[in-house]
Amino acid sequence: MTLTHPAYGQVRQVTPTAAVLLADNPGQMTLDGTNTWILGGPDAAEYVVIDPGPQDHAHGAAIAEATGGRIALTLITHHHHDHTGGIDRLVELTGTAVRAADPAHQRASESLLRDGEVIEAAGLSIEVLATPGHTGDSLSFVLDDAVLTGDTILGSGTTVLEARDGALADYLASLDKLVASGRGKALLPAHGPDHADLGPVAEYYIAHRRERLDQVRAALSQLGERAEPMDVVRVVYADVDQRLWPAALSSVRAQLEYLHTHG
């Protein structure tokens, strides 16, 4: 039987070189849970792991079992705990080196991941693509036939933006980079189901952000240019579950900063 998402506790092959192991940490912000990706070329004796997931001993053990402990390298898409909480457990079980853009998550490596770097491991060439917006340290990883997008593009819904100056401008540039690098390639996100082609999903994300900006502009016309961000949330996200409004507030702060800077 062919597995489909979500398949907890089971390794699901998605492309010839990428399989996924879904952590059992579903929630409003994690969707069905965190996808840990296990990569390897057809003749490779080792694997590359993308995001060990949350601090969950069972999930760490499942990654170790799926790889036979033969992990050439573990890569981190960004610093959030549902992606990095499992680092030390996986290191304990397998001895894997870990590389990230944030030095707090490096293990047995002094070289931080950098934009444009190409990693040769597990029979694969993996290009590192800086894709900030969701967080300042967000990275995507480009393979010949797929792109691992972390939380920059999700398998369903849209992502939350960091409430910092320049976050939305960075994010729109990141989406453009992903369209250029990933059109025609599979989308392998950190949450939600995979997609056969990244291009249409990324283009939807761009259109969605432009639409949200128009909605924020309209809210400011109604509320006044000095409206508080939460008042904008109440207007723009009126049809969204109020439990998600704190996350929406972060995105609205980024949108307001963008409009004040770019008009």
Rank of each mutant, 00 (worst) to 15 (best):
T2C: 11
G155E: 07
G155R: 03
L124A: 06
Q242A: 14
D51M: 09
A219D: 06
D197C: 06
A247M: 12
I119T: 04
H57T: 15
P52L: 13
V142F: 03
A219P: 01
V240M: 10
V201S: 04
T261N: 09
H208Q: 15
H191M: 14
T135M: 07
A202E: 03
I76C: 03
L31S: 04
A44D: 05
A64T: 11
G224S: 10
G123Q: 01
V91K: 03
E117M: 12
T149I: 10
V236H: 00
L168T: 05
I126K: 02
L90D: 05
G157M: 09
A169C: 11
A247Q: 09
L148H: 00
A180G: 11
D176F: 08
T17A: 11
A64Q: 07
D176E: 09
S156R: 11
L31I: 12
D194A: 15
H79C: 12
L168H: 02
L259S: 02
K177L: 14
G33S: 09
P193N: 06
V14F: 02
T36E: 00
A180I: 15
H105S: 07
A62G: 05
L93Y: 03
A219R: 02
G33H: 03
P42F: 13
L90V: 15
S251F: 07
D145Q: 01
V252S: 00
T84G: 00
Q28P: 12
T131Q: 01
L154A: 09
V147W: 00
V232T: 03
Q28D: 15
E65A: 15
N35Y: 04
S109A: 10
H78Q: 10
K177Q: 12
D82V: 14
I50V: 14
V98G: 02
L113W: 07
L21Q: 08
T15Q: 05
A146I: 04
I76V: 10
L93A: 10
G133S: 08
I119G: 01
T15W: 02
T36Y: 03
V98N: 04
G199V: 15
P189G: 04
K185R: 14
A169G: 09
A45T: 13
L249G: 06
A167L: 03
L198Q: 01
G224K: 10
S125I: 13
I50W: 00
V252I: 11
G86K: 05
D115M: 06
D88A: 08
L213A: 03
A64H: 07
T67L: 08
T261K: 10
I206M: 09
